[in-house]
Design a binder for these strands. Structure first.
Lengths: 215, 215
DNA sequence: GTCTATAGAGGGATAGAC
DNA sequence: GTCTATCCCTCTATAGAC
């Protein structure tokens, strides 16, 4: 996430607008959207409340802008389906899972992304847009991608002929739970060592379970 | 959850106090703690705002009361560790997992519990107490229990000698993610059929993977 | 694009009569 | 335990000068 875009996808150039967005992500991720006021944000940005409305039509548009930037960033880390054949040919299942895990971890560990993940979690119940985005972009998106990959590996006889959809769910769902735990631990500045090890353990255990070549 | 208790664990007898708690759970679970005012709650309860303070010292104490009741209810559905031997002797691993799944599902499907789960999710980032409760009561509690059970099954030679802690994590974490998806789907009154099937699929897949008697 | 000023609603909480 | 009345604060948002 190098540059923010507005709700229409255009890059944001104005310095104060970037600052408002940046501060909003910081504070929303800590206290939640409702608990943070425009007053809080503009004070930290060093401008007056009224100037806020030159950049965003409303507080809701500010949140929406954050969501748009999240969606953009998530789509960037997911390999396009056309590349799946190359990937599958180049890596065995275990390497594929461990590489994906590393990419995913790098993504969620970038400070701004980590904060936005937290906002998405926070606002899921209150905000239908956050909920929709999480379910479609994250859960369904990732699972569908993995399903394709696992199907290829099965065709290549590299993993056992389980149902590819089941495999995708079995692999990805634990990671969702671990990611959310990771995010909460970071919130308290507690060590994430154990949960990170669990992610790796999971990838190893899983490839062990599904691969043709046993033990 | 038949009767609410106050923050000291004493049953709540007063009708209005019960109503306030009940309505608070309803509305907090939909809109989040910060977005709901005491005004909203007392209006729905049919009493004046000022009367609220005869029952709860503050809005925070109200939330704390909800958490206390959640903790009480969760502890009630977890079998005590002394009963593990009987359970393991009476059921094979697959039956154990499917039975546990049914209990868990019944618990989370009780309307009040479902709402409180949602509040816990909602408040996790904002409220350290909610976070602590989720991590210790739910995640660590359930995982530790399963670890003991899996160890027994391994000793009895009924499942393969994987690390019991890994097995507990591998089994429970996907369920955490599925539960949170379940809760979000219910929020939009969407069908939970698929995610419920996934839970069962997971239990079946998992017992298939870990059991000695293969295919 | 930023400011001052202000509108207008709603927030948590308390005092004191009954 | 409930009420009326009220305090003082914070909130989002707008109007209009510069």
């Amino acid at each position: 996430m190098n540059a923010f875009v507005d709700i229409n996808g255009k890059p944001i150039a104005n310095k104060n607008k970037i600052a408002l967005l940046d501060i909003a992500i910081d504070t929303f991720s800590l206290n939640g959207f409702t608990a943070v006021s425009i007053r809080d944000i503009t004070r930290k940005a060093g401008i007056k409340e009224s100037s806020f409305y030159n950049h965003f039509r409303s507080k809701d548009e500010l949140l929406e802008t954050i969501f748009v930037n999240f969606r953009k960033s998530v789509q960037k880390i997911m390999p396009p389906l056309e590349r799946v054949d190359d990937i599958v040919a180049a890596m065995d299942p275990k390497s594929f899972l461990l590489t994906g895990l590393r990419n995913f971890r790098d993504h969620v560990q970038s400070p701004k992304m980590e904060q936005i993940w937290r906002i998405i979690y926070l606002e899921q119940c209150r905000n239908p847009m956050a909920r929709e985005m999480y379910v479609t972009e994250i859960v369904q998106g990732v699972t569908a991608f993995l399903e394709v990959v696992f199907r290829k590996y099965i065709e290549r006889n590299q993993i056992r002929p389980y149902d590819p959809k089941t495999l995708a769910v079995e692999y990805q769902y634990p990671l969702f739970a671990m990611i959310s735990e990771f995010i909460l631990l970071r919130l308290d500045r507690r060590s994430t060592e154990e949960i990170e090890r669990r992610m790796t353990d999971h990838a190893v255990f899983f490839s062990h379970v599904i691969c043709r070549s046993e033990e």
